[in-house]
Structures are given as structure tokens and as C-alpha cells.
Amino acid sequence: MPLNIDWQQILLHLLNFIILFAGLWLLLYKPVRKFMQKRKDEYEKQDAESERKQTEASRLRAQYEQKLADADAEIEAKRADARKTMDAYAAMRKNAAQEEADSILKEARENAVREKEKSVREARREISALAAEATEKLALRETASEAFDQFLDAAEAQEKKGDNE
């Protein structure tokens, strides 16, 4: 054969390479690939797990934020209610105070009227006393006893009149 090509040696080379191929596949390629694939699977699994946890955390966060927003709204509503109640209570207290003030004023006015009447009566009594004293002084200038009797009569008559009124 040209170039020293020898079929027998080609077959021997083939046998050699096939043995090498089988040996390397079983001893090196397959175990290393298996190890690498296993590690890759583990990392992918971890990735998927972290992705799932991330999604779960996001969902929980959204849920908590929603709850927080609901709580804010609820607090605002309760605050408005409290304000409303406070306003009503203040109005009630104001009305009560007004009523009490009116009552006090009325009583004060009545007292004032009574005091006035009392003062008038006392003034009238004092005037009467003064008049009597003046009359006495006047009567003493004529006859004291006559004048005194007249004065007594006059006073009695006036007292009766006052009782009748």
C-alpha cells in the first residue's frame, strides 16, 4: 500500500482508541459530568428555593403593608368618631352650663327683686319712723300727749292698712 498504509495497523489503532474512549468515558468523563450536573442541580434547586422565598416575602410584605394601610384608615375613622363624640359632649356641656347660668341669673334677678322690695319696705319703715319722730317733735311743741295719741292712732291705722294690703 502507498504511504505504508496497513489495514491491520489501522484496526489496531482503532481498537486502541475505542479502548481509550470507553475507559475515559467510564473513568473520567461520566463521573465528572455527573458530579457537575449534581452540583448544578443543587444550585438550581437553591435558586428556585430562594426565588420562592423571595416571592413569599414580597407577598407577605404587600399583605402587611395592606394591613398597615387598613389600620391607618381605621385609626383615622376612630379619631373622627372620637372627635365627633367630643364635640357632642362639649356641646352638651355648653348647653348645660348655659342652662345653669340662665337659672343662676333668674334666681339672681328674683333675689334682686326681693331685696329691692325688702329695701323699699325697710326704707318705707325708716321713713315712717322718721316721719313719726318728726311728727313727735312737732307735736311736742303743742301737746305732747295729744300729739302722741294722734300719732299712735295714725300709726295703728296705717298698720292695719298695711296688713289688709
Binding site: N4, H13, L14
Partner: peptide, 12 residues
């Protein structure tokens, strides 16, 4: 560098 080896690998 042996032609038989090269032929074997090429043909295989």
C-alpha cells in the same frame, strides 16, 4: 504522525 493512526481516528 503514523498515517495508520490518523486514518483510524479520521475514519472512526
Amino acid at each position: 504522525s503514523d498515517i495508520n493512526g490518523a486514518i483510524a481516528l479520521g475514519c472512526l
